[in-house]
Deep mutational scan, measured.
Amino acid sequence: MTYKAILNGKTLKGETTTEAVDAATAEKVFKQYANDNGVDGEWTYDDATKTFTVTE
């Protein structure tokens, strides 16, 4: 399944996708990606669109 992350960081804005077996696995991948890029904020998840959003 393909999951998407939308990054609304102070220094990084954009989107990325990952293939994962479930939302929990995708969330770990996206949170690591955000952390590696200095983005730390509030996370939300929309199951209907399989989209995570982080906003700083």
Rank of each mutant, 00 (worst) to 15 (best):
M1S: 13
M1E: 12
M1H: 14
M1W: 13
T2F: 10
T2V: 14
T2R: 12
T2W: 13
T2N: 06
T2P: 06
Y3N: 02
Y3I: 03
Y3C: 04
Y3M: 03
K4F: 12
K4G: 03
K4H: 11
K4S: 06
K4R: 13
A5R: 00
A5Y: 10
A5V: 15
A5H: 03
I6W: 04
I6Q: 05
I6T: 05
L7T: 02
L7R: 00
L7E: 02
L7W: 15
L7M: 10
L7Y: 13
L7I: 15
N8D: 10
N8V: 12
N8C: 14
N8A: 07
N8L: 13
N8S: 07
N8K: 11
N8P: 04
N8W: 12
G9C: 14
G9R: 03
K10G: 07
K10S: 10
K10Q: 11
T11D: 10
T11F: 14
T11V: 11
L12V: 13
L12G: 07
L12D: 04
L12S: 07
L12F: 15
K13Y: 12
K13H: 11
K13E: 05
K13A: 06
K13F: 10
K13S: 09
K13D: 04
G14T: 14
G14V: 14
G14Q: 12
G14H: 12
E15W: 14
E15G: 05
E15C: 15
E15H: 10
E15K: 07
E15M: 13
E15V: 14
T16L: 15
T16N: 04
T16H: 12
T16D: 03
T16R: 11
T16C: 15
T16F: 15
T16Q: 08
T17I: 09
T17N: 06
T17V: 09
T17F: 14
T17Q: 10
T18P: 01
T18W: 08
T18D: 02
T18A: 08
T18Q: 05
T18C: 15
E19Y: 15
E19P: 05
E19K: 13
E19D: 11
E19M: 14
A20S: 07
A20W: 02
A20K: 03
A20T: 05
A20P: 01
A20I: 02
A20V: 04
V21Y: 12
V21F: 12
V21C: 13
V21A: 13
V21Q: 12
V21L: 12
D22H: 04
D22N: 09
D22W: 02
D22T: 05
D22G: 03
A23V: 11
A23K: 13
A23T: 08
A23W: 13
A23I: 09
A23L: 09
A23M: 12
A23Y: 13
A23G: 04
A23C: 13
A24Y: 10
A24K: 11
T25P: 02
T25F: 08
T25D: 09
T25Y: 07
T25L: 07
A26W: 01
A26E: 01
A26L: 00
A26G: 01
A26P: 01
A26Q: 00
E27A: 11
E27I: 11
E27C: 15
E27H: 13
E27R: 09
E27Q: 12
K28I: 11
K28R: 12
K28M: 12
K28W: 09
K28G: 08
V29P: 01
F30D: 00
F30S: 00
F30L: 06
K31V: 06
K31L: 07
K31A: 05
Q32I: 10
Q32S: 09
Q32D: 06
Q32Y: 05
Y33E: 02
Y33K: 03
Y33A: 03
Y33C: 10
Y33D: 01
A34H: 02
A34V: 06
A34G: 03
A34S: 04
A34F: 10
N35S: 14
N35V: 14
N35P: 00
D36V: 08
D36N: 09
D36I: 11
D36G: 05
D36F: 10
N37L: 15
N37C: 13
N37I: 14
N37Y: 13
N37G: 05
N37Q: 12
G38N: 09
G38F: 07
V39A: 04
V39C: 05
V39D: 01
V39T: 03
D40I: 14
D40M: 13
D40N: 13
G41T: 02
G41E: 00
G41N: 03
E42Q: 11
E42C: 11
E42N: 10
W43F: 05
W43I: 04
W43G: 00
W43R: 01
W43M: 04
W43T: 01
W43S: 01
W43E: 00
W43N: 01
W43A: 01
T44G: 06
T44Y: 11
T44N: 08
T44F: 10
Y45D: 01
Y45I: 01
Y45K: 01
Y45V: 02
Y45H: 01
D46R: 03
D46T: 04
D46G: 00
D46Q: 04
D46E: 06
D46C: 09
D46F: 04
D46A: 04
D47N: 09
D47E: 14
D47G: 08
A48N: 10
A48R: 11
A48S: 11
T49I: 06
T49R: 06
T49A: 06
T49L: 07
T49H: 05
K50D: 01
K50R: 14
T51N: 01
T51E: 03
T51M: 04
T51L: 04
F52R: 00
F52S: 00
F52A: 01
F52P: 00
F52Y: 05
T53C: 08
T53V: 08
T53I: 09
T53E: 05
V54Q: 02
V54K: 01
V54C: 13
T55E: 06
T55Q: 07
T55F: 08
T55N: 10
T55I: 09
T55Y: 08
T55H: 08
E56R: 03
E56F: 09
E56M: 07
E56V: 08
